[in-house]
Amino acid sequence: MLGVSSAAGMEAAAGYSLYPLHRCKTLHLVRHAQGIHNVAGEKDCSLYLSEELFDAQLTPFGWWQVDNLRKHVQESGLSKRIELVIVLPLLRTMQTAVGVFGGEGYTDGIETSPLMVANAVNSNHSAISSLNCPPFMAVELCREHVGVHPCDRRRSISEYQPLFPAIDFSLAIYFSYS
């Protein structure tokens, strides 16, 4: 996934630029936190072929990593400069993105869709709000690779939409496969 922020307000490197800094964007690339497939693959790499790892989700340690990165993003002020979050439509990447760049805790009665509903795919994680956060867009073309491993295959977009209601999947639908 990546966060896109405006270069305006950020310190410029010393020297000259070929393009004016105020017209540039800064990309922040973030890899997903630890998924169940990472743990299984470390024990036995043949487990990457297991269908039980289809569209692998985050481990409890992965959610801990997300919480720590979120704290860093908040404390550094970066969260205020992110204008757009682009995410690959895979469960673990969306969980990481909404956990890091999403709004504060979701509360029933708020008139906005959550970024992620509570206990999405039995994650045992609370809902994540879309309040006061940048827009999220799922883009299939962000994919690192497509292989034979079930952990790298995803659910259909129609299965993700109710789990991540505030993510825009309009650019992912056309590249859908399962």
Rank of each mutant, 00 (worst) to 15 (best):
M1L: 13
V4M: 10
A8R: 13
G9A: 04
M10P: 00
A13P: 04
A14H: 09
Y16E: 15
H22P: 08
R23E: 15
R23K: 14
R23Y: 10
C24G: 05
K25D: 13
T26N: 14
L27V: 12
H28T: 11
H28Q: 09
R31T: 07
I36L: 13
V39H: 01
E42G: 09
K43Y: 08
K43S: 13
S50G: 08
E51T: 11
L53Q: 01
F54H: 13
F54Y: 12
A56Q: 01
Q57G: 15
Q57Y: 06
F61L: 15
G62L: 07
W63D: 04
D67F: 06
R70S: 02
H72A: 13
E75S: 14
S76E: 01
S79C: 11
I82K: 04
L91R: 15
M94Y: 00
T96E: 04
T96S: 12
T96K: 03
A97S: 11
V98M: 01
V98P: 01
G103E: 07
D108C: 03
G109R: 06
G109Y: 05
I110W: 15
S113A: 14
P114C: 08
L115Q: 03
M116S: 06
V117A: 02
A118T: 07
N119S: 06
V121I: 15
V121R: 14
N122E: 13
N132A: 11
P135R: 13
F136S: 03
A138M: 07
V139K: 10
C142T: 12
E144R: 10
E144S: 11
H149I: 08
P150N: 05
D152V: 00
R153Y: 02
R155L: 13
S158F: 09
Y160Q: 07
Y160A: 03
Q161D: 09
P165C: 02
A166V: 09
D168V: 02
S170I: 09
I173L: 14
Y174W: 13
S178P: 06
